[in-house]
Design a protein around this nucleic acid. Structure first.
Length: 204
DNA sequence: TCATTAACGGCCG
DNA sequence: CGGCCGTTAATGA
């Protein structure tokens, strides 16, 4: 359904849509990471995030976006494809399987929220970073031999935002993992050398 | 003890 | 120059 849609390239922090100007479209992420946030007392609170291969904005098919939400690119670059909801509703009759895909997308989002809740409640800051790295690598990493490449890589600030900790903590955790030889990284990509050992470092 | 925050300096596009 | 990263010191739960 998205095959024909042109790919839109976004820079980090670039707004895709918000609750005021939804644009009445849903999107598919084709590369990178998109996050949905709300500002509370001047501080940014993460609602959800979407990675490559996922649909985004499916709530709009059934109702309104919750107020105060902004949806922005979290990696540099991030690529998406747009699908107007009007077009979607016209063609849904001839493409019933797409309705299932929307449902699956909502389930994925729900599962990820639960996963993040467990992370916040059960793990310390270091474990939260590692836990995100493991789950994100499993979902979005490209396997190369026994290793995995995550590219593009969110900045340490974004990783901290997602893991519920600060930029400095992410930096120190990542450097420690690199010192142990479990990962390698620079500003372009992350290479996970030993996903199994990384998984051992945090429960769940 | 663990984590957050500020601050500063360095690096890169 | 602006954005990002690495490190350290101060602070406090």
């Amino acid at each position: 359904m998205f095959r024909a849609a042109p790919e839109i390239t976004l820079k980090r922090r670039q707004l895709l849509f918000d609750s005021k100007r939804s644009g009445q479209s849903i999107f598919m992420v084709t590369s990178g990471l998109v996050k949905s946030t709300i500002i509370i007392d001047g501080r940014e609170m993460l609602h959800d995030y979407h990675l490559s291969g996922e649909l985004l904005g499916c709530e709009l098919v059934f109702g309104e976006l919750s107020p105060g939400i902004s949806v922005t690119a979290a990696t540099n670059p991030t690529k998406v494809k747009r699908l107007p909801i009007a077009y979607l509703k016209d063609t849904l009759g001839s493409q019933p399987e797409f309705f299932e895909e929307i449902g699956r997308s909502l389930v994925v989002s729900l599962q990820r929220s639960k996963e993040r809740l467990v992370r916040l409640a059960m793990l310390n800051a270091e474990q939260r970073v590692i836990h995100f790295l493991v789950t994100h690598t499993r979902k979005a990493g490209k396997q190369v031999g026994f290793e995995y490449v995550v590219k593009p890589l969110p900045t340490h600030q974004e990783l901290g935002h997602i893991a519920g900790t600060g930029r400095q903590t992410v930096t120190t955790v990542l450097n420690e993992l690199r010192r142990k030889g479990l990962i390698h990284f620079n500003r372009q990509y992350l290479l996970v050398r030993d996903l199994d050992s990384l998984t051992q470092l945090c429960p769940h």
